[in-house]
């Protein structure tokens, strides 16, 4: 019975279906706002769903010389990762008792899975362009993970060294959200920058680079596996901001009027993402590395030090 409930949670409510639906809607908001910024009409609201259904109905081509198993397995890895993180966050949000010690660390690890799946996909497809994309993705992961983890250390320090989502949430409920203190605010800024890279959006879409690498690691994918990649991306667009909301902005309430406030927090982060995406050119990989290991890591370290002094 318990197993059944867990499966339901994983597949339907906070897990796969829910995240996918909201994620696809969020990706539509992204495209629509982008279009409005460029003074265009933009696609209709069901665009994300149409894309996915269409891709599922298409032929899957295996490139010659590709490693078949990795090629087909890679997209599922990313999808499983993002679904798990999403279920985790929501379950811990709804019922704090289900949270366990160290789940924030697990969530951090799982959030890297989509990037790893991209890397695997690129190397498995036996295509020089995809390999370049993958190697760029590796460098990008190396560059943004350091400041991202440092930023997450701040709320952990604030809540007295608790490494469970519940601990961080209840501390925020008692003392106000992490981002309302100086160190928390700086950490949130760092988190937003890293989020942009995690989502692979401009200016950090270096590994996909549509104009030069034409899709990078996923260049050789078609049909259902490509749909899984697109879906993973849309789901990340929902999950990563929710993660930031949980650790920095007091979490998501699911009762009464505070649902509106929670939605507002998410929309705010989404708009920030879209604005960054639309007002910046793409960086080169070495510039991104320098950016993340230089100023951003510096900021994150300052935030950690401030948090240690209790600011």
């Amino acid at each position: 019975m318990k197993f059944f409930v867990y499966m339901m949670e994983f597949i339907i409510f906070p897990g796969f279906l829910f995240t996918a639906t909201v994620g696809l809607l969020a990706s539509w908001v992204d495209r629509k706002v982008t279009a409005r910024i460029q003074y265009r009409m933009g696609p209709p609201w069901y665009q994300g769903f149409a894309d996915i259904v269409k891709l599922l109905g298409k032929e899957t081509l295996l490139p010659s010389g590709a490693s078949k198993h990795f090629f087909l397995f890679a997209p599922l890895l990313g999808l499983a990762g993002v679904t798990l993180v999403s279920s985790f966050l929501w379950i811990a949000n709804i019922d704090g008792n289900k949270s366990f010690v160290g789940d924030i660390v697990v969530a951090l690890y799982l959030l890297t899975l989509p990037a790893i799946s991209l890397i695997l996909a690129g190397f498995a497809s036996n295509n020089p362009v995809a390999s370049i994309g993958s190697s760029r993705e590796i460098k990008l992961v190396l560059s943004y993970e350091l400041p991202f983890i440092l930023a997450i250390v701040v709320p952990i320090i604030k809540s007295g060294g608790s490494i469970s989502i519940n601990g961080i949430l209840s501390n925020q409920a008692a003392n106000g959200m992490t981002a309302s203190s100086l160190s928390g605010f700086i950490a949130l800024l760092v988190g937003i920058l890293c989020m942009q890279a995690k989502l692979g959006l401009v200016p950090f879409d270096i590994s996909e680079a549509e104009t030069e690498l034409t899709g990078g690691p996923i260049i050789d994918y078609s049909g259902a596996p490509l749909a899984v990649f697109k879906l993973t991306k849309a789901m990340l667009l929902f999950t990563v901001p929710v993660f930031l909301i949980v650790v920095f902005m007091g979490g998501i309430a699911v009762s009464g009027i505070s649902i509106l406030w929670s939605t507002l927090k998410y929309v705010m982060l989404l708009v920030i993402i879209i604005l960054i995406r639309n007002t910046n050119p793409r960086l080169r990989i070495d510039q991104a590395l320098r950016f993340f290991w230089g100023p951003v890591t510096g900021l994150a370290v300052v935030a950690v030090v401030l948090a240690l002094f209790g600011l």
Partner: peptide, 15 residues
């Protein structure tokens, strides 16, 4: 603006 109809330009023939 053909994106109104969901038409986008992609860089790879496989897509």
């Amino acid at each position: 603006d053909v994106e109104r109809f969901g038409i986008v330009l992609v860089g790879s023939i496989k897509h």
